[in-house]
Amino acid sequence: MSANSQMVTIKGTRDGLTLQLNDQCSYDSILQELEEKLSVNGIDDNQPMIRVTIQLGNRFLTNEQQETLRKIVREKQKLVVDQIESNVITKDEALSWKENTEITPMTKTIRSGQVIEVKGDLLLLGDINPGGKAVASGNIFILGHLRGIAHAGSQGNEEAVIAASYMKPNQLRIADQISRAPDQDSDGLYIECGFVDKQNEAIRIAPLQDVLKQKPDLVSFERRMLNG
C-alpha cells in the first residue's frame, strides 16, 4: 500500500458522516488513524447528534472488533454509529440468506387445522381451505384457492407478498400487519395479490400486475425459478 494512501476517509453526507476504512491495511493501523482523525477538531456542544456510517469494504470484523470501532466513535462528543457496512458476510449468514431465498414447491390441499411453515418462498399448487394456514418467511404464491390463513414475511419482512389464483382468505398477515377477513357475502377475487401499502401502513389487495409495478424486485422470484 502506498504511504500516501489514506486508511480512513471521512465524508460528510446529508445524513451525517461516512467513514470509509481502507481494507488493504491492518486493523490496528485503522484504529490508530481513526482516533487521530476524530481528535483533530472539537465538536461544539450546541451541534445536534451526528450519525456515522462505517464502510468496511472487503473486510470482515468480529462483533468485538466492531464494538471497539463504535467505542472510539462514541468517545467523540455528538457522534454515534448508525450502521457498519461490509461486503463480506459469515458462512452462517450466507447459509441463512440462501435458506430464506429458496423456493419450496408443494402440491397439496391445506385443510382446516393444518399448518404448513417454510423458510423462503412458498409455491403452493393447491388450495388453503378455511381453518388451514400457510406461513413463509418470504412470499407466498398459491395456484389455487386461498380461503384460510396466509402469513408471509413471518420473520419481519414487510416487502413480502401473498398472491393467489382465487383469494377469499380468513386472514392475511405480512410481517406484523394483519388484514381483516372480507365480508361473508362478498365475492372472492381472482389473480389478486396482498401486500403492505407503505402509505397507509396496512395490507392491501390489488391485481398482481399493479403490485409488480410497485415491487419490481419480485422478478427475482422468476429468476430463481429458472435457475432452480
Rank of each mutant, 00 (worst) to 15 (best):
L34K: 04
L34P: 01
L34T: 02
E36H: 07
E36S: 11
K37R: 13
L38T: 03
L38K: 05
N41V: 13
N46W: 10
Q47N: 11
P48Y: 13
M49E: 15
I50F: 09
T53N: 09
I54N: 01
N58C: 06
L61A: 02
L61R: 03
T62D: 12
T68D: 09
R70P: 00
I72H: 03
R74G: 10
R74P: 02
K76R: 15
K76V: 14
Q77M: 14
K78L: 15
L79M: 12
L79E: 07
V80Y: 12
V80R: 12
V81K: 00
Q83A: 13
E85I: 10
S86P: 05
N87S: 09
T90L: 09
D92Q: 12
E93W: 02
A94I: 03
L95W: 09
L95C: 10
E99I: 02
N100C: 01
N100V: 00
E102L: 12
E102D: 14
E102N: 14
I103C: 03
T104L: 08
M106W: 07
M106L: 15
S112Y: 04
Q114Y: 08
I116E: 13
I116V: 15
V118Y: 02
K119L: 13
K119R: 14
L123K: 07
G126L: 09
D127E: 04
I128F: 00
K133A: 10
G138K: 05
G138H: 04
I140S: 05
F141K: 13
G144L: 12
R147P: 02
H151Y: 00
Q155R: 10
E158S: 11
E159Y: 13
E159D: 14
A160N: 08
A164S: 11
S165V: 04
M167P: 01
K168N: 11
K168L: 08
Q171C: 03
L172N: 05
I174M: 06
I174P: 04
Q177D: 06
Q177Y: 14
